[in-house]
Amino acid sequence: MNYVLEVLSQEMIADNIYKMNIKDSDDNFIKKELKSPGQFVHVRVGNKTEHVLRRPISISEIDKDKHFFTIVYRAEGSGTKEMAKLEAGDFVDCLVPLGRGYTIEDLDHVLIVGGGIGVPPLLELAKQFNDRGVKTTHVLGFRSKKDVFYEEEFNTYGKTYIVTEDGSYGAKGFVTHVLDTLNMSDYDKFYACGPKIMLSVLDNTLPIPGFISLEERMGCGFGACYACVCQKTDGTQVKLCTEGPVFEKGEIVL
């Protein structure tokens, strides 16, 4: 699961938001090892020691036929800004796939809720649900118009509501403002990824079962360093990198 992979393309798709397509390994790890949407890749920044910790980034699209996967991330700190400089033909050292993702079930209609940089893994989730004949409705929140991405892509899979905090695009406010207008009995389950505060509100208020994907400062990414622990409601502790990042509603103390 440690691969040095070729960058196929990289582009900025919103303000400081980058989309990188990465080629499959020669032995096709995508087919052999990738299990579910919501799994992540731990990217090493460069090959020197300036950055000793890798960057955990969700996989947002998987193309098994064309043998590549996609990551979308925000270039915020010095490490991700360094990653943003990579071009087609460059190589990235990846630990992949890591974590447990979302389970695709045979349901009728599911609600997908994303906030900011939590949106990317939900695209592959929407795709796989649609491939299984499950209808998806999407509610995606961003800070402002310049931060919006993947609207068109989600639109191809189902009804997509965009909401911005400042109202510069779509509805004004938070995802909850849109969720309040929907009839929850239309949906079997919800699937969410985004800021902790958003997940906490959904976890506490949505009347249907669901799954959330969490984020925490991570060390190794494969369970050895004990950095990314979270508390479960049953009193036990779990490592987010190996037992998450996706958990069931009500499972984690938020």
């Binding site: 000793v52 925490e216 400062r217 991570m218 950095a227």
Partner: peptide, 8 residues
């Protein structure tokens, strides 16, 4: 948590 932070 947070339990780790990268430095130079």
């Amino acid at each position: 948590t947070p339990r780790v932070a990268e430095t130079s």
